[in-house]
Write a protein that binds this DNA or RNA. Structure first.
Lengths: 173, 173
DNA sequence: CACAAATTTCTAAGAAGATAGAAATAATAA
DNA sequence: TTATTATTTCTATCTTCTTAGAAATTTGTG
């Protein structure tokens, strides 16, 4: 696969962006390439296109698979596995939200609750500490609830919700 | 300042969590400590409490200040600057949203638009590439609009909006 | 103004992470 | 089964990030 200047630009930027959000640069670049590719790509072609080692592509694809962002496709007359990413940006958004909640928000909430329990049990903690923990727990719980509710929506409904914009904000009175 | 086991646990977790989201571990730890502290702390006390070099604390505080998450306070009879963080979790959330949008989403949107313009001008790009860019731009624009609208809310209103929960999701029909 | 305290910037050393290639494993076809 | 191709795992190297301390600067005091 031959990259045009626009494609290169996009892939590099996406890699950079993902990296800022705690995603390995190579992983984000592979993802970006698959988004641009109209057809599923075999690993060696990805390696060649992005000029990275075949083994890194393998690791990156495994990682993306763990996120549920790529799937494997088979092509007649070709023994190699071909990889493609989701077609719908909104589905992608929902998946990333779900995964980040599961991997980061949930464990944080668990840790905060453990802290709070421990703080209530012992007598060493100040009221200030307890209050702060309670605030954070409340915040994380609400955020988590939102993420869960979003999961129940279809990608199309998610888009519609974001498009509502003003109407939502008017609810706050 | 002496840390209780609960405080240590919280600070370490917060550092880890921030790090996963692309924030320097030391920066997040300083922030966590300031959240727990009932009073503003001078830099050298932070360094001693967290067992890190004075210079790192200086850098971290500067970074947090850049985010608008800490402010400086002066104490009578003490030449040193004292630092405190925001009291309200919701205000904190709004600030972080604003800053991440400004630093990451806006530049990404700009890059995507540049890619799209370039793609339309030249003849090298496929329709698939153009369509993908358009989808991403639409998504980022909507997300950005939401972030902007949230900025207009008070911290209390933000909390209320999140508490509405179901009502919001019912809007999608 | 000179001195002292506080703070920041700079840099070199150390730690952690990413990467390429080799080796091992698995899968397919003859 | 054996040979060949595809894929993954492992590890040593390289790069990048982090950090501590020194030096420089700024700020405040007598």
């Amino acid at each position: 696969m031959k990259l045009t200047p626009v494609m290169s630009k996009f892939i590099l930027h996406w890699g950079e962006m993902g990296w800022r959000w705690g995603i390995n640069r190579a992983v984000a670049q592979v993802h970006a390439l698959l988004m641009l590719s109209p057809k599923a790509l075999p690993a060696d072609e990805i390696a060649e296109t992005l000029d990275m080692a075949r083994s890194n592509v393998s690791t990156s694809l495994k990682e993306l698979n763990g996120w549920g962002l790529v799937r494997t496709v088979h092509v007649f007359g070709d023994r190699r596995e071909h990889f493609e990413t989701l077609r719908d940006v909104w589905e992608m958004f929902l998946i990333i939200t779900r995964e980040r909640k599961r991997r980061e928000l949930d464990p944080t909430l668990a840790a905060l609750r453990a802290c709070a329990t421990e703080a209530d049990a012992g007598k060493a903690e100040t009221d200030h500490t307890k209050a702060r923990l309670a605030q954070l727990i409340e915040f994380m719980e609400l955020a988590g609830n939102w993420a869960d509710k979003a999961q129940a929506l279809s990608p199309a409904a998610t888009k519609r919700l974001l498009q509502l914009g003003d109407k939502v904000f008017r609810l706050t009175g």
